[in-house]
Design a protein around this nucleic acid. Sequence first.
DNA 1: TGCTATGATTCAAG
DNA 2: CTTGAATCATAGCA
Length: 343
Amino acid sequence: MDEQTRLMHSHTGVGMAGHPGLPQHMQEGTGGTDGDGRKQDIGDILQQIMTITDQSLDEAQARKHALNCHRMKPALFNVLCEIKEKTVLSIRGAQEEEPPDPQLMRLDNMLLAEGVSGPEKGGGSAAAAAAAAASGGVGADNSAEHSDYRAKLTQIRQIYHTELEKYEQACNEFTTHVMNLLREQSRTRPISPKEIERMVNIIHRKFSSIQMQLKQSTCEAVMILRSRFLDARRKRRNFNKQATEILNEYFYSHLSNPYPSEEAKEELAKKCAITVAQVSNWFGNKRIRYKKNIGKFQEEANMYAARTAVNAANASSHGSQANSPSTPNSAGSSCTRDMPITW
DNA sequence: TGCTATGATTCAAG
DNA sequence: CTTGAATCATAGCA
């Protein structure tokens, strides 16, 4: 008993030293023999609290009940809450209200830009279009890859939202649980609403750090998907034979000036079911490769020249000479062997 | 598996 | 912007 009284004394002494807001009578020790009823009350309560752990469970329950019903209990709890509040605040006062994490903001922005966390419709295709636009034109035959990309993005999006929801739900459940627990405990130990609020904040911060991990891995997944998509675009796929023939036909029948106008490119693109950019690529490659090694292309050149000649002949024999697409100068002759390059 | 053909990309020049 | 030139990376073939 003496020991506990001493402990109690030192407890209150330490806790209240220099505390300006404390009632004077609480700073004067306990268990005095004077007749002050309130002081006696406080002493009783504190003593009961200190001895409660030494008691049997039943006894403790009964004590607890008695304490809860004690008329001085609310006042004592208020004071203890106040002390706690002051000490806790002094320990970690300023670190509340931290600014928004820049990394989190970056992740959020990226998820929004990729259409993962934004509004439901259109986000995926917008991102696909952005990814495509990042490296030149998009062929019509890329649509399969597009939809694949979109499907995968949707998948990522769904997983992200499911997980996010799960975390939020877990967070809410846990918060409610902790709040209930604290409220329950606030009947037996001094817990102020402010403290509960602070605890809730701590929980939220923990959960948002978990969410950040989710966001981070989602971003990584999108990046990987995106790079794969761009790699897939880089994969070469030969044009079909018909398209190649159409392009070659144009090239060799315009050998003196193989620079199709924008309209011609568009028409060729339409005929070959490829993009204008691909037509430009093809002509660019063709010109440079032809010029580099005319000999190698001689046979091909003759073949196409002959073919256009036959076409022209057929067309004229059928009466409609009008608009054969060919030959400013070389189509008529069946041999391009000595065609000088002027371009 | 190595080689060539070929579509795409990059970069500098105009 | 277009073009030429170099280069990359894969398709397709022997």
